[in-house]
Design a protein around this nucleic acid. Structure first.
Lengths: 154, 154
DNA sequence: CGTAAGCAATTGCTCAATCAAGCAACTATG
DNA sequence: CATAGTTGCTTGATTGAGCAATTGCTTACG
């Protein structure tokens, strides 16, 4: 990380500076407001919604733990605990993996699928209201590419 | 033919969808990598850096707790504890507010200022590497406005 | 004035996330 | 085919954050 070459230390130009100062809004405020909307509306925290949603899109509605952890931007241990919470609500169950007995699949139950169907409108509304509508008129596809680049390791 | 669904539930178009799916990268991955870079490089978590930085820009290098909490996107109680951590390292001190004895000012010490001077290149590098460079060629000023709109409380 | 209402900040508690350590199962090598 | 090393996941300990209750000061009103 430490690479204190002069070039790297050139001060930000005003537009860069404005963007960096505004970054906190998207890093901190947006996730909290979306989560608060979901919890207030459907009692389903964003982390748990994200897990259910990823499972619902997977083949046979099941995923290995590390796969799901990645998809949810969570550590493996964080994912274990999230699945425990969902399991205790009957929304997910765990099944040993056929091909590798070390592995587990998190599997969406019918109750989990129902919970998701009941909750997605709330998530959609929150995402529109707290995020998407503020980007009208911008090139969303290009922006999406930039977001993905920023998240890619290096 | 008219779509009978309420407007708010209209599905996302592909570009919107791509952006929403990429949002997690900026909400979750970017802050963690910037923080990890700062901690690895200068032992200074991003939250604490942000507090020092805001203080350094304030008149007399001092701010009221709730002001600073807002600037750092933190609750007041979260800010109290951050200041306690900084105070225990001698980087900040607390002084009763002259005009209102209920209030306290967090004041940057010389040691705190020195810590900041030693750390900002690391922060700048992290922000460039993990965020800014992926947005080259986009209209940064417009993007900054969109970020600020997204964070503004309705 | 004097008391009720309100505000600034801190404290107690809880919770979700991390890292590090542990356990169980798989794989590769001599 | 034994065993050393690796991998997949869980568990234990810790941390940083938020909310709700509390403390101490200020202000507004009768």
């Amino acid at each position: 990380m430490a690479d204190p070459r002069p070039e790297a230390q050139r001060p930000l130009d005003p537009d860069e500076e404005a963007l960096v100062r505004a970054l906190g809004q998207v890093m901190y405020v947006v996730p909290r407001t979306i989560d608060a909307d979901m919890v207030g509306d459907r009692q389903l925290p964003l982390t748990e919604y994200t897990a259910l949603m990823n499972l619902s899109e997977a083949p046979e509605r099941r995923m290995r733990m590390h796969e799901l952890a990645n998809a949810c931007y969570l550590s493996l241990s964080g994912m274990t605990r999230t699945i425990i919470r969902l399991e205790s609500q009957g929304l997910v169950k765990r099944e040993r993996c056929e091909e590798d007995a070390r592995g587990w699949n998190a599997v969406l139950t019918d109750a989990g699928f129902a919970r998701l169907e009941e909750s997605w409108p709330s998530h959609l509304a929150a995402v529109r209201r707290r995020f998407l509508r503020h980007f009208e008129g911008l090139d969303l596809a290009e922006l999406a590419r930039a977001f993905r680049r920023a998240g890619a390791a290096d």
